[in-house]
Amino acid sequence: MTTIEAPRSRPTRRRGVNWEKWGWLYMRFSGILLVVLIFGHLLVNLFLGDGVSAIDFAFVAGKLADPFWIVWDTLLLWLALIHGANGMRTLTNDYARGKLRVVLLVLLAGATVVLLVLGTLVLTTFDPCIGDSTVDALIEACAAQ
């Protein structure tokens, strides 16, 4: 039989930075921001103006010419991807054990980093003139460069 430990004995568990707490907080705050970012994104892309039929290369090029949308999309990319990856991490921790868990977590981290780097690269180095555009304004702007 085990008896109750002596009162005020030091807890023997972990030490160091507690990432679970910060992870939990991150999910809450990024969640709130993402509601605004995602619905703003959907509203502008799919609803306002000509709606979904307006989306083509020129539409995207037009948006990414505006620093406001570059910041918006970068925030959306980082917050949503890390939010999702952290969710997948908790699922993995809940349901996978041993080596499988380590493999899944490494794959997840790898995929997250690759997607973040690729996405950020596109957003920051986007060149509207590589496309075969049919929009006059875009052709003029590119010709002027």
Binding site: P11, R13, R14, E20, D94
Partner: peptide, 19 residues
């Protein structure tokens, strides 16, 4: 000893695992 107990539950296997 609220601090002690909160510290114990602020663990990888503590309250943050609640879904």
């Amino acid at each position: 000893a609220a601090k002690v107990r909160l510290d114990i539950l602020n663990d990888k296997e503590g309250v943050w695992r609640c879904r």
